[in-house]
């Protein structure tokens, strides 16, 4: 499409950003010329328009498509009713996956939020904040293939008595323990996988929570200090409540990512040894077994699983409006 790479570079660096700003400018220029009451009704749709359009094409339409083909057979040629749902809810592998997703949901969310918060608050107090923050953030910058290599080096196993090549087992045996096959033994293996995800995603929680922490006006903290509050009191009564909505956002995001957890499981165990998760099962049904009906049914179940989370978010949305 772009023969000239220099032209492409210009489009990339200048054209695209300029076009987005130009859109907003154009919208206001047009709205300024029509009757204010009409403009007021039209404005929100033009501001949200690009987002809604892209979401419609790339996410909403495929999701409706997914929902429909979840009632069809493997290659979507024959209506099978609820048979795919019946299959996934009686299939042992899927039931294990459901249980594991619950584990992921609880522990991934808990640990990323707690660690993210802890790091954000601790690092805020030291001058080398940007360095330590970068080190915690680093795993986010690693592709999941590389993450697989890293954790292979961490979890590697050699028989007892041999020199260990895995970091964790070298530590365990150095303290006189027996090497552990982290990815094989149940239930350790599920937690070993969740640990990898926590290691990656804490950087996300840290960055968002830290931005929220910095957003708390200094005056409020100072006022609390003047009132004689100590650091712990400030943390519990001022800082955390003011970060409440951001903590909720991070937790929601992590719950959703726990539900669609895939990468880590796919590279490390592919769901063997009782570590299956829903998204990995869906991937198998879709691309390996090419059973689009079952794959779609799993995707639909994932979508239904977040309805409670959406309800909580509607409530929060209304509360924020009333503030």
């Amino acid at each position: 499409m772009f023969e000239n790479r220099l032209l492409l570079a210009l489009i990339v660096v200048i054209g695209v950003p300029a076009a987005t700003v130009a859109y907003a400018w154009l919208v206001e220029a047009v709205l300024g010329r029509i009757r204010p009451t009409v403009a007021r009704g039209l404005r929100p749709w033009l501001w949200t328009g690009p987002v809604l359009l892209l979401l419609l094409v790339y996410l909403i339409y495929p999701t409706i498509n997914t929902f429909i083909i979840s009632f069809f057979n493997a290659n979507s040629t024959e209506w099978v009713g609820l048979a795919n749902y019946e299959f996934i809810f009686t299939n042992n592998a899927v039931l294990i996956a459901l249980r594991n997703n619950l584990l992921w949901l609880v522990f991934l969310t808990l640990f990323t939020v707690v660690f993210g918060l802890l790091f954000a608050i601790l690092f805020d107090r030291v001058r080398y904040e940007s360095v330590v923050k970068s080190l915690i953030f680093l795993p986010m910058a690693i592709s999941f293939v590389a993450a697989g290599v890293i954790w292979r080096i961490m979890y590697d196993y050699q028989p007892p008595g041999q020199d260990q090549t895995g970091t964790l087992n070298a530590l365990v045996t150095a303290f006189g323990g027996n090497p552990v096959a982290w990815l094989i033994e149940r239930p350790e293996n599920n937690f070993a996988l969740i640990a990898v995800a926590v290691w990656i995603w804490t950087g996300f929680a840290l960055v968002v929570l830290s931005a929220a922490l910095k957003g708390i006006p200094v005056e409020i903290i100072e006022a609390a200090k003047v009132d004689g509050a100590n650091e712990l009191q400030i943390l519990l009564r001022v800082t955390l409540p003011m970060m409440g909505s951001t903590i909720a956002v991070v937790a929601t995001t992590m719950v959703i990512y726990a539900l669609k957890a895939f990468d880590v499981v796919y590279v490390m165990t592919n769901g063997n040894f009782g570590t299956e998760v829903m998204a990995n099962r869906m991937y198998k049904e879709m691309f390996n077994f090419t059973h689009f009906g079952r794959a779609s049914a799993i995707a639909t179940v994932l979508l239904l699983a977040i309805v409670p989370i959406m309800i909580i978010n509607i409530r929060r949305f209304r509360q924020q409006e009333q503030m």
Partner: peptide, 23 residues
């Protein structure tokens, strides 16, 4: 707008693999 906004959050959970073929 409430419904729209919550729908946007809901779309976070859509597994990208399901969107590839239609798109």
């Amino acid at each position: 707008r409430e419904i729209l906004f919550v729908a946007v959050i809901g779309l976070l959970v859509v597994p990208l693999q399901t969107t590839l073929i239609p798109v």
